[in-house]
Structures are given as structure tokens and as C-alpha cells.
Design a protein around this nucleic acid. Structure first.
Lengths: 137, 137
DNA sequence: CTGTGTGCAAAGCATTTGCAAAATA
DNA sequence: TATTTTGCAAATGCTTTGCACACAG
């Protein structure tokens, strides 16, 4: 049942503690961390793991479709363990990124088919605003 | 009537040939160029302008709201002389970025207000697919 | 004339790469 | 045991910065 085990076996990729740790960490949080943040978060449990390994693990996880790369317009990428297409919202004050749940934007692709000659595969929707914590400062 | 003249005067910014060139170039194209591309495109007309100056001009233009910074998930930013909110589509085969015109996504912000406690200001919608040229290869 | 902007080279980050040693299958 | 992956350090690519000179207002 453990998806990562099956997918890695299927693709002949090795299931290393580092890759598992990165994946589990992303599954456990909804904070859309950067590679650097993941690296620091795992440092106490995996003190010998290097930042380069985090980057390599993330690349592999994205390639096999277990993790999603997002970019809200910062200088770095963030990662999301939820690969279901869903919108994100970025607080322009504190910088955090939250998921928007309960709204589906599946209809967007249909709405533009008549306005483009591309074959559309996916979309990314980002909202920008001020979060509740920052409003009350 | 030249917006850049009025806005720059208003903000006490200097209207230099370099800033004007960058702005005019962005207004003249719909190709969403990177800083590097803009730099190269202007090199014949402004052979002494440096890449750093292009970056500084872009930063200023974004700050005063004459230009929009976009990021479709590449390692660099792209710039758009059209500051009206509008969706973009990125060809995953050749890498080009096109505007989607004739569709408004103003309703998106309303659709999520009940699903977030953020005060929403704007959104960015990116589509991903294969462009007409790449389909026919 | 005064302060802001330019151009250059160097610095700064995020990310990638090459390679020997280690670990998975 | 045969690859693949790790960890390190160096390299790369995009963007920013510091500073002297030039230029717009």
C-alpha cells in the first residue's frame, strides 16, 4: 500500500532512507517547504544527509509524480507532498503558502480551450493576499 | 499621455534612455522575455548598456507598476509589459509563454473567499501544454 | 549643481554536477 | 556483486551589490 515503495520498485529506483525521509516530511506538513527548509528540518534525524541529497531526492520524487514543485514568485522553489491539482495562496506579508481546499478549478482548462491552440495538460493557480495572522498585527 | 513619463515624474525617478528602452521593448513584444533576452535584444541599439542595468530597470518598472514579473517555473523570471491580470500558457516542449486573451478570471477570487481567511488581492493563472508548432513536429 | 542612475566587476543565493565511497537490491 | 545513490566540494546560472563616473532634473 505504501505508494513510494511500489513506485520506486516499478521504476527500479532505490528506496534509501534519505528519499523516504524527504517524502515523509513533505507528506507530514502543509507548509510547502523549500529544499533548504527540508534539509534543516531533517538535520536532527539525518545529521549526515547533505543539501545536495535533498535536492536530488526532490528531483526524483517530482519525476515519479509523488511530489509537486511550486513557485509563487520567490527566488526558490517550494515542494508539496499533495500532487492533486489545487490552488495555493501566498501571504505577501509573512510569505507563507497555504493550500486552498474545497474548491476545484478543473473547469479552467475548458474555459480557455476556445482561446488558445495549445493542447492543455494542467494549470497552476496562485492567489496573493494577506493572511489572517498578518491582518491582525 | 506617455504613462512612463508621468509616473516617473510623479515618483521623482529619472527617465533614462535605458529605462525607456527596456519599457518600450516590453511593450512591443508579446514574448515575455527574460532579463537576458531583453539585454541581448537591446544590445545593438544600446551597446554600452549592461545586464545589471537591465535588471535594475526591470526592478524599477515592476515597482511602479508598469511591468509585471511572471514565473512559469523556470530558473529565471520573465517580464510582461501588459500589467492587466491575464492568464499565461507555457509550452512544455519549446518553452515559450503566450498570453491567453479574451478570458477573464476575475471570478476566481470570489470563488475562493469562502475557502480561505486571507484578504485576497490578486491571482496568477498558468496553463501548461503543447503549442501548435510543437504538436505538428 | 545635486542626487540618482549607469556600468563594471565582484559577491550572493539557489541549484546542479563530478567523483570517490557507501549502500541498496 | 553490480549499480545506484550519497556526500562533499566545486561549478553554474540568475540576480544583486558596491562603487566611481556620468547624466537627468
Amino acid at each position: 500500500m505504501n505508494t513510494i515503495t511500489n513506485i520506486f520498485r516499478e521504476k527500479n529506483l532505490k528506496l534509501t532512507p534519505q528519499r523516504i525521509a524527504v517524502y515523509k516530511y513533505l507528506k507530514s506538513t502543509n507548509e510547502h517547504p523549500s529544499a533548504e527548509i527540508i534539509y534543516k528540518a531533517l538535520q536532527s534525524d539525518y545529521p549526515t544527509m547533505s543539501l545536495a541529497t535533498v535536492y536530488k531526492a526532490l528531483k526524483t520524487l517530482v519525476e515519479v509524480g509523488l511530489v509537486q514543485e511550486i513557485n509563487v514568485g520567490e527566488s526558490n522553489f517550494r515542494y508539496d507532498g499533495n500532487t492533486n491539482p489545487h490552488p495555493h495562496i501566498h501571504c505577501i506579508s509573512c510569505g507563507k503558502v497555504d493550500d486552498i481546499i474545497g474548491v476545484s478549478f478543473d473547469d479552467l482548462n475548458d474555459r480557455i480551450t476556445d482561446h488558445t491552440d495549445y493542447d492543455i495538460l494542467t494549470n497552476q493557480v496562485y492567489f496573493y493576499g494577506v493572511c489572517n495572522d498578518c491582518k491582525n498585527l
